[in-house]
């Protein structure tokens, strides 16, 4: 199985501080992967690099079967290529309705002219309705996103991500601020999504990662410290030291 995303030998530094140091990582087309690591391990910077927000000093990031380099592409182009990203804090467009938010995210040509001439066709409409129903926001469709509760915003954002139909989903700490029930649901959802596409979950919470039941990559000081099942990596002394030694 060829890799969907291949990150190799990437380094990036800010004013001398090496945030990412010779990092290599790869993930297949339908795989669930958790990335764990203490604060400052470079998790967020790693996502920034993949989504094109930060350009690395060295290394390569290739995408898809054709091995296209993501380094020369803009954030928007990378997103169009099929990389979706969910931020830690829900970021939805609060001044617009839930429906508008979903239509914005809905996979469609992205150029200004296309947007001018866009009309919500039957299929697109059904898709938005389906997504809204799946996250329980059908009744909220005409409401402004700013009026939603924190949890509802999380769901709206997940629905927007799905509307984008990405091939790779980068999820930053999805469980933060969720109730236990919501966490369980999120876990189930991520596992389900990962059956058809690649999902990378960045998470602090070991319990949550355990529930995902997937391969785990441990980052430390900008490089991969260990990789394998959660049970496997938690037995490695260096990983224990990094987590326990640094609290």
């Amino acid at each position: 199985m060829s890799a969907l995303l291949e990150v190799s030998g990437v380094s990036v530094s800010f004013d001398g501080f090496k945030a990412i140091n010779n990092l290599s990582f790869s993930i297949g087309p339908s795989e669930l992967r958790a990335i764990i690591g203490p604060n400052g391990a470079g998790k967020t910077t790693f996502m920034d690099i993949v989504t094109g927000k930060t350009k690395p000093n060295s290394g390569s990031v290739t995408w898809g079967e054709k091995g296209q380099s993501l380094l020369t592409m803009s954030e928007a182009a990378i997103a169009r290529a099929g990389v979706g990203r969910k931020f830690q804090r829900p970021t939805v467009f609060e001044d617009q309705t839930v429906a508008e938010n979903l239509v914005l995210a809905l996979k469609s040509p992205r150029s200004p002219f296309a947007a001018l001439l866009f009309a919500l066709t039957g299929e697109g409409r059904r898709r938005v309705e389906a997504l809204a129903a799946q996250v329980g926001l059908t009744d909220a469709l005409p409401r402004k996103a700013g009026e939603l509760s924190h949890g509802q915003k999380q769901w709206l954002e997940i629905a927007m991500l799905l509307a984008q139909e990405p091939l790779l989903l980068l999820v930053d700490e999805p469980a933060a601020g969720m109730t236990l029930a919501e966490r369980e649901l999120t876990t189930a959802m991520l596992v389900e999504i990962a059956k058809t596409r690649a999902v990378v979950v960045v998470e602090h919470d070991m319990e949550f990662v355990r529930r995902l039941d997937c391969r785990v990559t441990v980052l430390h000081e900008g490089s991969v410290l260990a990789e394998g099942t959660l049970d496997h990596v938690t037995k490695i002394p260096s990983v224990i030291e990094v987590y326990l030694g640094r609290g």
């Binding site: 429906a99 309705e129 809204a132 129903a133 329980g136 469709l141 139909e165 091939l167 058809t196 596409r197």
Partner: peptide
Amino acid sequence: AAPPFTLPKYPGGTGAGPRPSAAL
């Protein structure tokens, strides 16, 4: 093309499945 997928239902929702909305 992304393969289709199904998701678990959100329990707090109406549970009625997709239905047309006037907003759209």
